[in-house]
């Protein structure tokens, strides 16, 4: 039942496998960040700030027709790219699917070992928040 989320994850993992070195992976992440839908400044308020990240990250959601849509934004480029990956997998899915899908891509594309602990903690904080939100709409 998680096929669509899992497929998204597999696609991301396959894409990262094509890169030869880490700087290429970072370049790809940075470029993804540039494609992130800009967030309305009115939403960039303290109550939407995600704690656990060294850079500023804002996360908002809406629940529509049984699906949870997320939008997130950051002032840092690499984090913006990571947000893009997370949104690709989790946004627009049902709460049940979100809860059931583990973010394997972090481990499988090597993000956990190549991002500083503070930043990968920030990524984990974002996914925890997404899952907690899904839990509240279950």
């Amino acid at each position: 039942m998680n096929n669509s989320l899992q497929n998204q994850q597999e696609e991301i993992i396959d894409t990262f496998d094509m890169f030869d070195d880490w700087l290429e992976k970072y370049q790809y992440i940075i470029d993804l960040g540039k494609q992130l839908e800009p967030m309305d400044d009115a939403l960039k308020v303290d109550e939407n700030i995600l704690h656990g990240c060294q850079s500023q990250v804002w996360l908002v959601h809406d629940f529509n027709n049984g699906h949870l849509n997320f939008q997130a934004s950051s002032d840092a480029a690499i984090v913006s790219g990571l947000i893009h990956l997370v949104m690709t997998i989790y946004s627009g899915q049902t709460p049940e699917k979100i809860i059931a899908t583990e973010p394997e891509f972090i481990e499988r594309i090597g993000l956990s070992s190549h991002l500083s602990s503070t930043r990968s903690n920030g990524l984990n904080a974002m996914i925890e928040k997404i899952k907690a939100t899904a839990q509240s709409y279950k």
Partner: peptide
């Protein structure tokens, strides 16, 4: 135009 954390992450590599 570049966040300090982004610079720090890349030059670490």
């Amino acid at each position: 135009g570049i966040h300090a954390h982004d610079i720090g992450t890349i030059i670490d590599h």
